[in-house]
Design a protein around this nucleic acid. Sequence first.
DNA 1: TCGGCTTTTGGTAGCGCTACCAAACAATCA
DNA 2: TGATTGTTTGGTAGCGCTACCAAAAGCCGA
Lengths: 316, 316
Amino acid sequence: MSVSRALNTPEQVSAAILAKVRAAVESTGYVANRVAGSLASQRSRLVAAVVPSIAGPVFQEMVQSLIAELAARDHQLMLGQSGYGTQKEDALLDAIIGRRPDGIVLGGVVPSAAGRRRLVASGIPVVETWDMVQDPIDMLVGFSHEAIATAVATFLIERGRRRLGFIGGNHERAARRASAFVDSALRGPARGRAVAVQVETVVAPATVRSGRQALGEMLRHQPETDAIFCSSDVLALGVVTEAAARGLRVPQDLAVVGFGDLDFAADVSPSLTTVRIDSTRIGQLAARFIVSRSEGLEVEEAKVDVGFSIVTRESA
Amino acid sequence: MSVSRALNTPEQVSAAILAKVRAAVESTGYVANRVAGSLASQRSRLVAAVVPSIAGPVFQEMVQSLIAELAARDHQLMLGQSGYGTQKEDALLDAIIGRRPDGIVLGGVVPSAAGRRRLVASGIPVVETWDMVQDPIDMLVGFSHEAIATAVATFLIERGRRRLGFIGGNHERAARRASAFVDSALRGPARGRAVAVQVETVVAPATVRSGRQALGEMLRHQPETDAIFCSSDVLALGVVTEAAARGLRVPQDLAVVGFGDLDFAADVSPSLTTVRIDSTRIGQLAARFIVSRSEGLEVEEAKVDVGFSIVTRESA
DNA sequence: TCGGCTTTTGGTAGCGCTACCAAACAATCA
DNA sequence: TGATTGTTTGGTAGCGCTACCAAAAGCCGA
């Protein structure tokens, strides 16, 4: 009917019909069934996002901007949690593919080989985020963990720190950052100037408590540690808190660098020096790429590095 | 066909057919189209949740448990953000209703009269959470802001505090808690013992920074304030930080009570005395109510008060 | 062997939309 | 005026499943 047009493309319909349809909609409280629409048009206007956990503060900002950006373009977000293990992930992927979303956003999730194949076979646009993987499934918006680790190591060494530490989660991404950090400290541009690097891992998701405990471990293994890079501001807050409890002065005795520039980073005491990522931009770009693609446009630059910056505050 | 049965109710199908179907599925990589299934069966296996913002830490735990509980029952979550204003909310509600979810979970969102009508008219099960409103649309899982405010006021007064303060967001829920706090302090069970109560509001969502600023305001208006109840642990962290910066000892000079028992509450210094809500349980119950309802079961106790507890730590 | 009974299987219709096409109508020009 | 183009409107088919029913098959005791 013309009703479908009146609702979806009102500019293609005469004022008379438009008014009639609007009146009818108003009086009956009709809300078009988008399930039927999706089936007929092969466009669900639904985008799925998969993150390891929504509880960690890390992906919040990205998810928030995804939802906002999608809503502005009349799309909705379906959210899945993969957990930090892989077993549930493939089942989740199937549940998602079955819903035929217009796109899938992977947030810091590295799919298994099988999952990857299903994703490709489904033909659904995929945006990997967070991580500049070398061989993306489809589109990519992220930043380089290696580059960040190198920049932070150099930053600390140039400030005279020699016995470095890294505290991060026990998962892929953090591990990559850890080894790049160690590499850069010992063999990077500031080569030879760092004396030692110690790595401690904590169980994901990161908490203030695990940050406190990790500092204890760190000092047990390498008592003269004078700088620590944490893979989350939450961990950094724990390290700073534990340092104060042990009578260590930050930054004089111990420099601390966090990650994420979470909302509290500037306002705790000492304020946190941290790595800032524009997560909002990541969410926006991911949403735009997917919507463009599902509108049939070719997405030109489908591999974007959003970069990072080191925000210098009191803690380092 | 029998294929549909083999996939959905395998116990109703002979081993021979089951094997054949499974083999075919395996070899073709077939993933059933749930959009078509939803349209035919009038069950989408999709549940919508609406929260003011996913960035605030308050709803995270609930959303997380919602996703987990729904996934265990083969349902997915669609997430909407209403913001802290009302204008976008009605449009969002329509977008949601159009998708014909099996249920809608409202997290701390009070719909407008028009929104409420559409919700009722849609016939979709609704669970309001977070707030024990007196006249729910449908089902309800929450706790009483008034009871909490009264309990905290009494708690502080019994500990000898006389000049109380309340810091909360500029929205409905916080306002209700604020006035109940003032009422209880001045006219409650501990009646007459509190000397003064001052309320400061901050722009939602709550941040550490706004907590710091609010303490400044509080002390400007009521310099002898000796106890503050914050409507979020994030605010409480800001208050504690600002107090330290001003040379106020917590709890000796100033008692601070937070809200939420967020993951950092036990591990910052001083650790936060706070109000604990079992948000995980709220999410679980909401999910169960909706799934049960959509399976045709009558939900017996559809109005649950999950209660709260005051966790006593160092800050008060 | 046969009628009743239960279990398993296959066919048909239809969920509520949109894509596509054809018909009707309006506007423009020779 | 009629032919030609462009715009608006309505009809039909079909998206890929599931509900429902009827037919077929298996099972039992008489």
